[in-house]
Nucleic acid binder design. Structure first.
Lengths: 84, 84
DNA sequence: CAGCCTATGTATAAATA
DNA sequence: TTATTTATACATAGGCT
């Protein structure tokens, strides 16, 4: 989307990679949420970045264990950050 | 997208709900894969439908446990189907 | 660096086959 | 009912602030 076509490879420039990560993470979570609501299914989305753990789910019950059973990203030595 | 605007509520018509599920599931997985590659992060996407379990991940190592630690959807009494 | 803007690329709702 | 075809809505890359 946007002005240029997307190449399916790691974005080398750190700044653009961070910007793209932020934009696409938001879009992906929105879509995951929509799929859950529109189609009445349970969806879990987990994204591990260098900063911490991010996740999304539309129906907590069956998926709540995900919060507890994962391992911490090795690069993270701080308390993990949990975002909606 | 498409011809009509989207209402963020459960699609009541079973046929449209199934059609929408199929289309959006594909789109969501594609985007999840792209985010993982472009931004060099680990992504896991799990969708529980009535049919079975679907999942996606860009980096198997840390997330492989997801395959084993989840519980089966109660509505599924057949062997689960695993898709890429 | 976090937002805002907007031209363009994509995803997809409906319609149709 | 599933596959293909548009017309549109939506997401977002690159620029700019």
């Amino acid at each position: 989307m946007g002005r240029g076509k997307v190449q399916l490879k790691r974005i080398e420039d750190k700044t653009s990679r961070q910007v793209t990560f932020s934009k696409r993470k938001g879009g992906l979570m929105k879509k995951a949420r929509e799929l859950g609501v529109l189609c009445d299914v349970e969806v879990a989305l987990m994204i591990f970045s260098d900063q911490g753990r991010l996740y999304e789910f539309s129906s907590a019950e069956r998926l709540a264990f995900l919060e507890l059973s994962h391992t911490l990203p090795p690069s993270s030595n701080k308390k993990q950050k949990v975002l909606s």
